[in-house]
Amino acid sequence: MNLAAADLGELLQLVPVQRAGAALLLAAVGLPVVGVVIVGLDIMPVRFAMMHVALLGIAVGLLTGLDPMLCALVACALAGAGVAPLARTPDGLSGAMGLLMSLAIAAALLVLSISGVNASGAFALLWGSILSVGSADLWLLGVLAAAVPALFWWRRRDLALLLYDRELALSAGVRVDRLTLLLLVLVAVAVAGAIKLTGALLVDALTLLPALAARRLGASLTSITAWAVGIGLTVNATGFLVALRLDLPPGPVLVLTAGAVVLAVHLIPERRISSWRSTAASVSLPSWH
């Protein structure tokens, strides 16, 4: 059922709605940049692996009585650090992610079976619960919104080399193993932090899709990052308002909005994109390599 403009205004006065909107705006600053890492390192399976690891963390939280989302974040961070040594080649990391997915979901089901708790609370992460965002979630997203762009600006040369070519980064003196470890932990925590907003199945709307559109438009790591954040802010704000206006679940609306942007960007003629890149080069933005 559609809401009138006045009703939408009243809805935006509700604290849970305001928290959800704030969470999406904070997520739009940090998570699309994480998507740039996912695309650059070619580690698409990481989202699915971390979804399963988060499920295991939530199951452990339900068993022990600890905060399930905190357990999910810790589990994802440890998993990201654990697979980092296998990231020397994309194939090695992809295989590790497949193994991680299988082991994590098996362990989660075993923990849920042993504990005897209601599994619906654990599997709710598949669909998200954006209106249940709390202060802890906002703090986490706020830290990511500050830390991720800051890291990209501080280590932009090393990151550009690593995302362009690992061997080139090694020959240039970049501490590739340490940087890769940091990035994988950051990706894992970011994916876990976004699960409550859209659900694990739709987390791509906040991470991967803005980055895919940005890679098409940007000419350098700096410009790609800026495009990713700009697209993320636009998609999250627009999708959330449309979902409220039409009384629809935000997760699918955000995915469809982001997907429409990606498709629109890829329909732009290559000649026009090349002219934009020439303009970007004229203002001396750092390149990927």
Rank of each mutant, 00 (worst) to 15 (best):
A96W: 02
L186A: 13
S220N: 08
T238I: 11
L131T: 13
S220R: 11
L233K: 09
A106F: 14
S132D: 14
L206F: 15
A150D: 09
W227E: 00
T207V: 14
L197N: 10
L126I: 10
A188E: 01
I114Y: 15
A214Q: 11
A205H: 02
V189S: 08
A150G: 02
D177S: 08
A214E: 05
W154M: 09
V191T: 10
V203I: 04
I231H: 00
T207Q: 06
L163Q: 02
I224Q: 15
L221V: 14
S113I: 04
T198Q: 04
L131C: 08
L131K: 06
F240L: 06
R178C: 06
T234M: 05
L197G: 03
W154S: 09
G173H: 13
S115G: 15
A106W: 13
A237I: 11
T234Y: 04
L170Y: 09
V174A: 13
V148C: 03
S132I: 07
A106K: 11
L182V: 12
L170K: 12
F240Y: 12
A160W: 02
A219E: 01
A108F: 03
S115V: 08
A205V: 04
V187P: 01
V111A: 08
L109Y: 12
L181C: 10
L100S: 04
L170A: 14
I195L: 13
S120K: 14
A226Q: 07
L125R: 05
A205D: 06
R155L: 12
A228M: 01
L110G: 07
G134S: 07
L126D: 06
L202E: 00
L151A: 14
